[in-house]
Design a protein around this nucleic acid. Sequence first.
RNA 1: GGCCCCGUAGCUCAACGGAUAGAGCGUCCCCCUCCUAAGGGGAAGGUUGCAGGUUCAAGUCCUGCCGGGGUCGCCA
Length: 580
Amino acid sequence: MNLFADLRSAVVDALGRMTAEGLLPQGLDLSAVAVEPPRDASHGDMATNAAMVLAKPAGKNPREIADALAVKLLEDPRIQAADVAGPGFLNLRLAPALWQDVIRQVLSAGLDYGRSDLGQGLKVNVEFVSANPTGPMHVGHVRGAVVGDALSRLLAFSGHDVTREYYINDGGAQVDVLARSAFERYREANGLEPEIREGLYPGDYLIPVGEALKAKYGTSLLDQPESVWLADVREFATAEMMQMIREDLAQLGVEMDIYSSEKALYGTGEIEAAIEELRQAGLIYEGVLEPPKGKTLEDWEPREQMLFRSTAHGDDVDRPVQKSDGSWTYFAPDIAYHYNKVKRGFDQLIDIFGADHGGYVKRMKAAVSALSGGKVPLDIKLVQLVKLYKGGEPFKMSKRAGTFVTLRDVVEQAGADVTRFIMLTRKNDVSLDFDFDKVLEQSKDNPVFYVQYANARINSVLRKARDAGIAVDQATLAAADHGQLSHAAELAMLKKIAEWPRLVEIAARNNEPHRVAFYLYELASEFHGLWNRGNDELSLRFVQEDQATTQAKIALVQAVSVVICSGLAILGVTPVEEMR
RNA sequence: GGCCCCGUAGCUCAACGGAUAGAGCGUCCCCCUCCUAAGGGGAAGGUUGCAGGUUCAAGUCCUGCCGGGGUCGCCA
């Protein structure tokens, strides 16, 4: 189903025959041999670097290898031409039938076109969002949520067994602050004046929580000391916040498989067990950290604490797991949590963090490396800042929370589909500008619109053909005479479609869902170009007098639509069939 | 100061180690008797921050600088 993979096999086979005939030495490493689309279409359909890669290990001139390889490859009826070019590229031209057959493949596979078993069922855990349960999700969380979700969909599409997981930070001091803030709203619900002291959360999203507390406890907590109510209110408020966060995520179209609680790790011995595991490995010791050089901390004083020898696994300094009062730092339960993931049998872990957690990457990788015996790779994607604009001006607004723009603000204004697509038009480690006006603009300046418009045009053509009484059902289109599609513009369209499985593979291998968004833009561009050529060359229009010709052409654009829908599904974006 | 990310056309950004570094915006020219012009075609625009190195091949990998951002033990 992946033409590029098929051709690479053909190249590898040919090299094998050359080896058998003594033209190449035994035991060559072929892993660097690639078959890829040439940047310049005039170079042919596909190019392989085999001769250049193998020249040195084989002790031969690259052109010599390329010439011999060309002879072998030309025995394959699929390959019409094989020309040596440049420093030793072998440019291949394929029989048009190979490209035309892509339509049949796409139409019979439907939305599964491009799906692969690349991951071979590997169990992958993707942890993302993991926002503190102390308030509604804000813009900063949106990008992480979208990237994590799209990456999960991409990996699942590529044959991985994906688990999406949210780690609830409900074990630290911040949830006590939440409880105190909610308690003030509880007092307010009972007619008292709330005292939102400095350091408490002022957002009015806690007002309903206060009312819910009143409904549950009446006035019974009002005169009680904090020691009496703190734990209960904390639990209650945290649950309310998590409910709100789930709703926020649902608005974005994000669904988690598992919510894991930090607090649940305390008192179970899991943290102690994880630390003990590290201690057994000689990676835990009592020590005093050096103050950071070049940065002056006024209140620095040497302090003995329990440290993790993360430097043994690639970190720059060892990291504290216990505070000086003996309680755990945030890092300790996080170690236990990642240990827990390892023990659950995941083959690979992926964390999506905000860029402000950059300093956390090395120690987390060190911990996972130590606790999995180096067997479970942890990839941490840092998602950079989103800057909001409206009409080119920096945008600051808060309907609900006072000081920040919430996820709901964004989704309500821009819509989930637009938000998701735009958030994926940058790779994760570059900051992103999000302009509320721009993302809703209906022009080619806006990639979401541009891609959706292509799909809408295709559906318009389908309607047109149907109205003309032409059968355009899937089976008919798949069986149409695709051999008619021999115009260079049509073949170019086909080649773009044929790239999709390969693109998915590259994106999945690199954990880079943004590649899908860029590909869809290119695909749409190719389509709009083809559409417009119909203005000048009537033979390139999709709806023709002749029914069989029309069906072949409709089959082509239907295949484009399928790939657009397939790609949008990975991004979690709903395709539109009509612009209004 | 240490660590991490970024630096590509006037602007915003692409480019699995591959050939003559590509799109959009902006500027200039052109295309609707005709499937959605909400679109398309063309022109102009580049020493990929700087200097070395590895490689048949470097925007991409390595080292050192320069510039911007983030982060750095009792926050999570």
